[in-house]
Amino acid sequence: MQGFSSEFSAALALIFRGDAELWSIVLLSLEVSILAVLISAVIGMPLGAALAVARFPGRRVLIILMNALMGLPPVVVGLLVYLMLSRSGPLGVFELLYTPTAMIIAQVVLVTPIISALTRQVVEILAEEYAEQLRSLGVSRLASVPVLLWDARLALVTALLAGFGRAIAEVGAVIIVGGNINHVTRVMTTTIALETSKGNLALALALGAILIGIAVAVNAMVSTLTLRAEQEGLRHA
């Protein structure tokens, strides 16, 4: 017990004295995850919205597939991205393996289905409500996609949060394609795994506390923004 409290004190000291190694790991984690979520949003949101409004044979199957992809095992994604990026793989020529870019690619593969599936759900409900009104206003199904995305923006923040949560907490895929190289591809989760196995609990605990802090801070920020937007009324589009 005494060991734990001394490790915890050491962890707090690492955080508050601004340990350079610790904060470089935190920054890299944020950089990789935020970029992955942004790229996933650009791909996943229009895709989810289009799937919500489009009607074509096989749409149901595609929705089931997309929902299933939300639960993709990270290590399998890591393995597939590894195979694609490895020297003998189809994208090997770009030499991306063991770089932050490879980690972003792996996270995009994991996060895009989450964002697109949640977007599809949110937009489909709104599309049903808006359907006749938008048709009456002369808005085609395709043209309704940006309208629906904009009007569902507050609900879609939750989809982004879910994607960010998945990305920032992910270990399996990034450790395979990133290699957990010190000062290059070492992020919070992979460092926690490594340092725990080495018995360096102070750094692992410090990173764990920051990870939880980030999750709480992001949720609190979004919640505040949403509440403020609802109370004040939205700015004229």
Partner: peptide, 22 residues
């Protein structure tokens, strides 16, 4: 043509934003 429905379907925007859209 234009149509007004029994239950008004307003866009999730400001009052002016709804008119601006049209």
């Amino acid at each position: 043509q234009a149509m007004v429905f029994q239950q008004p379907v307003l866009l999730r925007r400001s009052v002016a934003g709804n008119l601006d859209f049209a």
